[in-house]
Amino acid sequence: MELPRYHRLRSTFYRLQASRCAACQATYFPPRPYCLHCGSRNLEELRLSGRGRVLSLTRVYQPSRGFSDGVGTLTALIELPEGLRLIAQLTDVEPAEVETGQEVEMVVRRLRTDEEQGLIVYGYKFRPVVGARAAEGANSA
């Protein structure tokens, strides 16, 4: 397990730290040193809310090494209210329970399935919104 690499990634993996261009307000995840929109290099830290909406999803039957749960994981393209998108695993959901457009929220989970030895890699995944937050999402939608 590449310890230094995952150590460096804590702020984005644990907290969805993004960046926002101070000049034009464009937002980026992962954070970037230069704004793609206006070229500014004055980008500031932005912590994302963790809310999102499924734009597209797929059930993966042929996983990468270290990601096999034996039954097929869900990967989704997620749109965030801060004006950006990311790709992440979905968790706490059966394939039949999720569809595009669904509101999801970020949780921190174990990313890999081969962690009995070495570092446990924690990072963001998304799941259907739980509880009252779900009702809120539904009302605002």
Partner: peptide
């Protein structure tokens, strides 16, 4: 717990 959960992830939530 789910396969990707442990005490740390549950504490965080």
């Amino acid at each position: 717990p789910g396969p990707d959960e442990d005490t740390a992830t549950m504490c965080i939530e």
